[in-house]
Amino acid sequence: MSQTKSAFGQAASLDTEHAVITRNICKNYGAVEALKDLSLEFPRGQLTSLLGPSGCGKTTLLKIIAGLLEPTSGEVEVNGRLINGPGPNRAFVFQDFALLPWASVMRNVAFGLELRGMPKSEREAIAENYISAVGLSGFENSYPHELSGGMRQRVGLARALSVDAKVLLMDEPFSAVDEQTRRKFQEDLLGLVQNENKTFIFVTHSIEEAVYVSDQIAILLPRPSRVSEIIRPRALHGKDVSNIRRDPEYLDIVDQIWASLRSYVE
């Protein structure tokens, strides 16, 4: 553990600024050009949102960074190293949770560690910590079908946190949960970004959500998509969380983004 920490420390000192860099990414699905020459940098320890209309390639980009998809051309650098596949420095949170229906909450949360070959008692101790961190204490032995959508996504989040990856990739993690749960999640996410010292890459459809949780927002335009604009609502995060939604700056940024996106929405 301490070895990996110091390795991260070294990598960080090489390039303190950016945890993830994508350069000139192109991705074609047969004749469909999903991404074209997309370059983007993700500041370390911050949350970057990918925002854009449906079908513009947000999931595609996220999966390329995760190493789940090969780009047609271009490269992805994580902590100063080119990637060629999934790696332990990245963890994915899925829109549809991707839990094992036949496994308890405990086993699901510990599953990433199980696949890494960590002994049972050790991984369950770590999982237990994250289960209580996401507020699911007492549900260790429940099964996913016994939980609400919000609770299932907490399990997915705890699983991603427990492998201690420095980069967290989240594909519309809150889109399958109800509005109130969603707001609570957004607040919790702000706390996570502040306390966990991880880099978050967050895909969303919602302008309000992006402005609320992000340090940086990359706006993607429809196919073949590239970054059209980068907005940094960082200043908002110095302010009181409960007032952000009433802040004039927040409202301005939301308006500004809507202005640039509205022409792409029929």
Binding site: P86, P88, R90, F92, A98, G112, R116
Partner: peptide, 15 residues
């Protein structure tokens, strides 16, 4: 099988 389960296994480097 749900594609996400397969992706999940891959992203955690399942053999």
């Amino acid at each position: 099988i749900n594609r996400s389960l397969v992706d999940m296994a891959k992203s955690f480097l399942a053999t």
